[in-house]
């Protein structure tokens, strides 16, 4: 059996895990807004302190977060180099041959890097590590449900997500089976160039697609047999409820965000701007 990490959900029972997914979604949006509003070093330090507290609260090893930063390392280096080389403005700090580095370039590079780091950390902290894909789907459906009045098919999208999540392991297993069956007939998936490998995968993809369609058909019949007729008149076993923890969290979060923003406004120490 395959154990596939969907997203990178890290099962646990911490405060961050127990929060209502809607609260987490809204908090994340607010957090990202704050990251892009503030620009003083003092604010970022304060934000870092609050974020660190939340990281500890999630009871997920810090090394997991550190590993999560790896994929953006390249982007950080890339944008830093571009910013240093391309941005002009302010004093010239350094000049050698065709390389001219200006004050503004350095500030931009630092600001973008810091923001990217916070962005990555917070999305892991609020969503990917602490929220199971299923409750995330439920949270999204509930948050977006007002849109269904405007005929946006919110329930249908969330149903699609649920089914997709359910069938990922099944299809992975099936891919494995088909590949083994083709290998037994002498197919070679591991040698040759990119194009010949892609070609070798064709006899895997076709049966997989055919069976996926057959599955979809059978699943639709099974769902109809279980009285499914769309989102209308449907109830849920697990109703999302904002409990005490959620209210306390939201209040604390709002206060912290206000603190970070006001530090930025009233004590613009080392503000990264010109």
């Amino acid at each position: 059996m395959h154990d596939i990490a969907l997203g990178q959900y890290f099962p646990g029972d911490s405060v961050m895990h127990r929060l209502d997914p809607r609260v987490k979604l809204v908090s994340l949006i607010a957090y990202i807004t704050v990251i892009f509003v503030v620009n003083s070093a003092a604010s970022f330090l304060l934000l870092a302190a609050f974020t660190f507290a939340l990281l500890l609260l999630s009871r997920i090893p810090l090394s997991v977060y550190a590993r999560g930063m790896k994929p953006i390392l390249f982007i950080i280096i890339f944008t830093t180099v571009i910013n240093l080389l391309m941005t002009t403005g302010g004093r010239q700090l350094f000049s050698f041959g065709f390389i001219h580095i200006y004050e503004k370039g350095v500030i931009n590079a630092v600001l973008v890097s810091v923001r990217l780091c916070f962005l990555m950390l917070s999305s892991g902290l609020f969503l990917t590590y602490t929220t199971s894909p299923l409750s995330l789907t439920d949270g999204l459906e509930s948050l977006l449900s007002p849109l269904s009045k405007l005929r946006v098919p919110v329930h249908e999208f969330s149903m699609m997500m649920t089914i997709a999540l359910r069938f990922i392991p099944t299809l992975v297993e099936e891919t494995d089976k088909v590949m083994n069956a083709q290998k037994a007939r002498g197919a070679d998936f591991s040698s040759g160039g990119l194009i010949s490998r892609a070609k070798a995968l064709l006899p895997v993809m076709i049966p997989l697609f055919v069976s996926a369609f057959r599955r979809a058909d059978e699943l639709a019949v099974a769902m109809e047999c279980r009285c499914y007729r769309g989102g209308e008149g449907r109830t849920r076993m697990k109703v999302l409820r904002c409990g005490r923890v959620d209210v306390v969290f939201l209040a604390a979060f709002a206060l912290s965000a206000a603190a970070v923003v006001s530090v930025n406004v009233f004590f613009p120490l080392f503000a990264f701007k010109l």
Partner: peptide, 20 residues
């Protein structure tokens, strides 16, 4: 091909949920 949800109890709840 007749199990809808990725958690057993959620799947069992699917029918009653449809019944409202």
């Amino acid at each position: 091909n007749q199990i809808v949800a990725s958690v057993v109890e959620e799947d069992v709840a699917f029918g009653p949920e449809n019944l409202g």
